[in-house]
Nucleic acid binder design. Structure first.
Length: 862
RNA sequence: GGGCGCGUAGCUCAGUGGGAGAGCGUCCGCCUCACACGCGGAAGGUCGCUGGUUCGAAACCAGCCGCGCCCACCA
């Protein structure tokens, strides 16, 4: 079968692979064929599924997405080629606070605010925004080549998804896990909402530590306490000392007078107080400090709040402070205390302070009525499945991190004072104070028939994310999708959301979907900016993956990201992306050589010649290696192994070896070479496809007799029968000898193109070496000729092209080197300990090396 | 305060008990009929420091120095 002349012309002309021209076209062909949309058939065990970490609707593709997309796609494509039904679940996350604040910002620019427009209009506005921008990131995933199921895109606020969220909330409430309580929360003044512990980040802050004297009632003693937030003293309700602190033993049970306020504060004993820190006396402010809150609950103390949700002072703070910002109140309080002479010390103090991860504002710990979810019961089975390996985390060390957190898990504050998200399925009857939690809205109060008012709060965005692997498949309905694809197989993500997301998915999957949500968790590396800082838009350190794709192609970026990733954080290296681009180009050109000089042959392994057996053997070993590396998520080694095989073994050596056969059209041997090359090329393309899908698919379309696209063709399985250790030894020896000869040529300053007369000292002239090193054995055989140098088993015969002087100088250098090597070897072998205790094969190797060096010395006449 | 990770060639990183590797960069030579996004060759490293284990350590152990990350309620 002959190649279409147009196609042939294209191959002849295009000496460079043009990713930009190829990728869109190829991706379109995949989509059109519907390869990425599986029918929901079969069982989950025989199918393969991945739930994509849903990007935020606000987002655009960043390097993390690109790396993670490359990893997931490599796995999805490999499985698809292995004949599995593959579903890569796609969708986006509504991203509560994030999205809301983007739209609010936009409103503010236009001079409006969400409060002006009201909740309903605002939410509608956010939906509009989502419709406009919601699929931008999906389009960007397509540029990467990601083989997601684009026909079944989900969104965490879709109708069905909302149903799942309400079902889960209601069930958890029925079980008593979800409850409402007045509790200390992390109040974020930036978003005007409570946030969870996980959304708080601690930063070092330089504050002033004030020591304040509180007079002990009925005595002239004072208790000195220290604080960085003097304004919170207005809400103090006790003083605590350690029960073992002898200094204060007699004061426990007595009271202090709270300066400025006059309230009487009981002096209590609690082991939490550190005797050695400061004065050993601690002011207790249950309303504004998480630790004090716990101590307060323990001792039944009054909980007073003097700072409101807007960050301003409220009653029962003394009237003169009410309405002031906390910072202004602090100034006032300090001034007054100073006047009273109650401040005994002020010192600079650096400590870590909680900030909102989202808004960046300093967290105000407040007591607030919120909805919480108790996690300990949910955590138990989720701990078990990681311990017993039903969920396998790679790299393994993250299991420990997961388990440590799970074992100390705390209640989760799930309500947020926002408008964008899943509004709580909770209704209150103001008349009789009844609370209803239900999947569908109750009409009226069941006890008093009163009107119901819905709780205005929405759920933490991670609450819905926790259901992602099964809610996307139609849960709570018993859908064919759920049966076919749950549990999913792989969850690939970065380590920063192990707690926020991975842990919660495992808990919810086990509780609601009846099984683990995925079998493997792969924690990939974080790609940092080239200077080692975090890649971030705000720092200006981000590198846009799409720009990289424009510059070098998606295959190049994918290869680069996979190759640079590892089990630790790595710096982005454009050189690796270029390496990928070069590799794509190399594939293209190697394929041109093969296809234009034997593309009509029938692909078939050739085993007559040793070099053919060698490349087959190397290929099959590479197949086995890469297969194993991908299976263990060792993606960077897989990518680099592909590069090594293709570039070094296939192109640098094998192609150079077979070229003459290929060009020699008259020789029937050329057919075998072409057939073998096509066979190797075909398998190599298939092997490379999960990593570099576009260029491989494009070349595949030029192979003779293809009826299926590569994307749905078989992934190679290593064929043991082609492993041939003897062929490997033989060809590798020829390669080594060729290298020696080339080095010698350089040394003797002989032009690479000059064909040198040569003679073999061990009988038959090595044909491969002759070809690769440009030697003419016939000239050597016909006459005696003077040997000017011996390289291994080959004598170079005298010729005008040789610079004898340079040669002699270099040879004497080599002799010196050999002398020292021989000396080293002799010393080592003279070491009785070494000879006695080292494994015999090591000693043997040492002996043979020494022998080889001695032999070479002899050859060189040293 | 606890935990984890890292420190290897100029740069980015592999290597985790038997004589230091890759890519990029550098130097030398090549537009050799697949590819100059290429071909051939070369230079370049007391493997953070100090001790220890071992016949043998970049690798294992201990301590130290430096960098990064995570967790944590010391006012």
């Amino acid at each position: 079968m002959s190649m279409n002349p147009d196609r042939r012309a294209t191959l002849e002309q295009k000496t460079r692979y043009d990713a930009g021209e190829v990728e869109g076209r190829i991706f379109g062909s995949w989509i059109e064929a519907g390869y990425f949309h599986p029918e929901p058939e079969g069982r989950a065990e025989e199918n393969y599924s991945i739930a994509i970490p849903p990007p935020n609707v606000t987002g655009s593709l960043h390097m993390g997405h690109a790396l993670n997309g490359s990893i997931q796609d490599a796995m999805a494509r490999k499985r698809r080629m292995e004949g599995r039904r593959v579903k890569w679940i796609l969708g986006t996350d509504h991203a509560g606070i994030g999205t809301q604040s983007v739209v609010e910002k936009q409103l503010r620019k236009q001079g409006g605010s969400r409060h002006e427009m009201g909740r309903e209009a605002f939410v509608e506005r956010v939906w509009e925004w989502r419709t406009e921008y919601g699929d931008k990131i999906i389009e960007q995933f397509k540029r990467l080549g990601a083989s997601c199921d684009y026909q079944d895109e989900r969104f965490t606020l879709d109708e069905g998804y909302v149903k799942a969220v309400y079902r889960v909330f209601t069930k958890l409430h029925e079980k008593g896990y979800i409850y409402r309580d007045n509790y200390m929360v992390n109040w974020d003044p930036g978003s005007n909402s409570a946030i969870s512990d996980l959304e708080v980040e601690n930063r070092e802050v330089a504050d002033t530590l004030y020591s304040i004297d509180y007079p002990v009632e009925g005595s002239d003693r004072v208790l000195t306490v220290a604080t960085v937030r003097p304004e919170t003293m207005l809400a103090d309700t006790a003083i605590a000392v350690n029960p073992d602190d002898e200094r204060y033993a007699d004061l426990v049970g007595k009271s202090c007078e709270l300066p400025l306020v006059g309230r009487s504060l009981p002096i209590i004993a609690d082991p939490y107080v550190d005797i050695s820190f400061g004065t050993g006396a601690l002011k207790i402010t249950p309303g504004h400090d998480p630790n004090d809150f716990d101590i307060g609950r323990k001792h039944g103390l009054e909980e007073i709040s003097v700072i409101g949700e807007d960050g301003r002072m409220i009653e029962p703070a003394p009237e003169r402070f009410v309405g002031l910002s906390a910072a202004d109140a602090q100034e006032g309080v300090v001034a007054e205390l100073r006047d009273l002479g109650a401040i005994s010390a002020e010192e600079p103090y650096t400590h870590s302070v909680p900030f909102s991860h989202r808004s960046g504002e300093r967290i105000e710990p407040l007591i607030s009525l919120q909805w919480f979810c108790a996690m300990d019961q949910l955590a138990k089975p989720a701990i078990e499945v990681v311990r017993d390996g039903r969920v396998n985390i790679t790299p393994e060390r993250w299991s420990r991190v997961y388990l440590d957190w799970m074992e100390g898990i705390r209640p989760w504050c799930v309500s947020r004072q926002l408008w964008w998200g899943h509004q709580l399925p909770v209704w209150y009857c103001d008349a009789c104070e009844e609370t209803y939690v239900a999947e569908t809205e109750p009409e009226r109060c069941a006890s008093c028939d009163g009107e119901l008012r819905r709780d205005p709060d929405v759920l933490d965005t991670w609450f819905s994310s926790a259901l992602w692997p099964f809610a996307t498949l139609g849960w709570p309905e018993d859908t064919p999708e759920l049966r076919a694809f749950y549990p999913t197989d792989l969850l690939s993500t970065a380590r920063d959301i192990i707690y926020l997301w991975v842990a919660r998915m495992i808990m919810c999957g086990l509780e609601f979907a009846g099984d683990v949500p995925f079998h493997d968790v792969y924690i990939h590396s974080v790609i940092q900016a080239p200077d080692g800082r975090r890649m971030s838009k705000s720092l200006g350190t981000g590198i846009d993956p799409l720009q990289e794709i424009d510059k070098h192609g998606a295959d190049a970026l994918r290869f680069g990201l996979l190759a640079m990733s590892s089990s630790q954080d790595v710096r982005f290296s454009e050189a690796k992306v270029q390496q990928g681009r070069d590799l794509a180009n190399k594939m293209w050109n190697a394929s041109r050589l093969i296809l234009l000089n034997g593309g009509d042959a029938t692909p078939a392994p050739a085993v007559e010649r040793v070099e053919d057996r060698w490349i087959l053997s190397r290929l099959e070993r590479t197949v086995a290696t890469i297969d194993e590396q991908l299976e263990s998520y060792d993606v960077s080694h897989a990518a680099l192994e592909l590069y090594r095989f293709l570039w070094s073994e296939l192109c640098d050596w094998y192609l150079e070896i077979v070229k003459p056969r290929l060009y020699d059209e008259s020789g029937e041997d050329g057919g075998a070479a072409a057939g073998n090359l096509l066979h190797v090329l075909e398998r190599t393309l298939a092997l490379a496809h999960p990593i570099m899908p576009f260029v491989t698919e494009e070349i595949w379309s030029y192979l003779p007799g293809r009826d299926a696209q590569l994307v749905v063709s078989a992934f190679p399985a290593a064929e043991e029968t082609h492993i041939d250790a003897d062929a490997e030894t033989a060809v590798e020896a020829a390669i080594a000898q060729t290298r020696d000869l080339r080095r010698w040529r350089e040394l003797a300053d002989v032009p690479p193109s000059a064909i040198l007369a040569a003679r073999s000292t061990d009988g038959s002239p090595p044909e491969l070496v002759g070809r690769l090193a440009r030697l003419d054995f016939e000239a050597g055989e016909s006459g005696p000729g003077e040997a000017v140098a011996t390289v291994g088993t080959i004598e170079i015969l005298a010729s005008e092209a040789l610079d004898r002087e340079a040669m002699d100088a270099r040879l004497s250098e080599r002799r010196d080197k050999l002398r020292s090597e021989v000396e080293r070897g002799e010393k080592k072998l003279a070491n009785e300990g070494f000879v006695a205790k080292a494994p015999p094969e090591v000693v043997e190797e040492e002996r043979s090396k020494l022998a080889a060096y001695r032999a070479e010395m002899e050859e060189l006449g040293g």
